[in-house]
Design a protein around this nucleic acid. Structure first.
Lengths: 225, 225
DNA sequence: CACCGTGATGACACTGAGTATTGTCAATAC
DNA sequence: GTATTGACAATACTCAGTGTCATCACGGTG
């Protein structure tokens, strides 16, 4: 259409003004004026000034939630990696906007706080999903918490690297690497299929003393009480 | 002294009023009036309404920072666990206040956001410290990010459990368990001392097929590229 | 064509957080 | 005794966010 949606015009006006004049210096009136609507209309589309910077977070969160829920215990790991890829893909799709927002968020504490809060919402989602997946196994809550935190941290690390590099390279190989790392690290979280068919690998240095071997074994056993 | 510090009176008045009348329903004027000072005095002691709920976060953060900086690469793990214990100890010291705040934060989204932001600051601190510690090793940034996230997640999991239980039990054994778990999980993050003297443990199910063993080994190797 | 319901928008008023400025008073220094 | 400093109060201001009501465009209906 000739005139893009009001919602989109508002978001664009907001980011442009924040960029030009600074966040605190820009009033909602300014944004509404630039978008050619009234102040009240702004608040009809966005609950707050910050909201205009993160227009589609709720949608994305719902998408991730849906992807996680559309899986069984057998496909949990795939669901998690898929969900993370969805999020990253969302940033990559609109690299222009993502980069501008990244620079903006870096300069405005209020926006940084907002972003951190939304990251926490993803982490909570993953935690709940993984918690259900692991339910019944020992330390399920703890493990779910740790794995959710790691998954989200891995995503953020890759995303930040991509943003800092100016959104130039393809971030999915790094993401796969990072997620592979997380999954390998947490592989022993998976519930043993039938309790007897586990495969575990151990190697010993030929020069290792029996004491050193014992300590390694104790550490290993100590982590699964 | 007969009259406690104004700062303390303000914080107490704030939490009391938030408890009685709700957060949004309480104005800064109310808080100041209850503390027997003027509105402007409130803002002299706290930058915002939320600040009054988390009076000593900055101090605690500085303490943690100091503890981390007062360590070398050799003692990094001890420093991390110590730092986490400092934080938990701070909550336990004043269980009364911690519990009241926990209930309050659970009900007020604005406070929850604030708390999440301060958790992020701890995580950042740990990430930087661990990053320096691992500097030079492959994937140092990624590993630092993951371990910091896990350490913080472990702490929060234990803290939440303690708070939900009403602050009754001693949370340090659970913390040790959780941290032990994290450290065991990330043990292979430690840089090998001299590259040849590692001790690694591997066990195989007697019924495992050679293929299963090979897969396990490949997974193991895949996590250290 | 006149009428009517509906949904989007604007105009406006109000509350309250946070800031900045200025004034006042008391303690301490000199 | 006077000057300086610092803690607090008083006041006015900006602006985010909420709520209410009027207006206008519109599509359908009689």
């Amino acid at each position: 259409m000739a005139t893009p949606s009001i919602s989109h015009r508002l978001a664009e006006a907001a980011v442009a003004l924040f960029d030009e004049n600074g966040y605190d210096e820009t009033t909602v009136d300014d944004i509404a004026a630039r978008a050619g609507v009234s102040r009240s209309t702004f608040f009809r589309y966005y609950r707050s000034k910050e909201d205009a910077v993160f227009p589609d977070h709720d949608t994305l969160l719902a998408t991730v939630d849906a992807r996680l829920r559309a899986s069984t215990a057998d496909t949990a790991i795939v669901a998690v990696t898929d969900a993370v890829r969805i999020v990253l893909a969302h940033y990559v799709e609109d690299a222009e906007v993502s980069l501008r927002r990244y620079r903006l968020v870096g300069r405005v504490p209020a926006l940084r706080a907002r972003e951190i809060a939304s990251v926490a919402r993803y982490q909570r989602l993953f935690r709940e999903f993984i918690g259900e997946w692991l339910a019944g196994s020992p330390d399920a809550d703890l493990r779910a918490e740790l794995m959710a935190a790691s998954v989200v941290a891995a995503h953020n690390q890759v995303l930040r690297g991509w943003l800092r590099a100016g959104g130039t390279h393809d971030p999915f190989p790094p993401l796969d690497h990072a997620l592979g790392y997380v999954i390998a690290t947490f592989r022993h979280l998976e519930r043993p299929q039938d309790g007897k068919d586990q495969v575990v690998v151990a190697t010993f240095s030929r020069s290792a003393s029996p004491q050193a071997v014992m300590e390694a074994i104790q550490d290993h056993l100590g982590s699964r009480p």
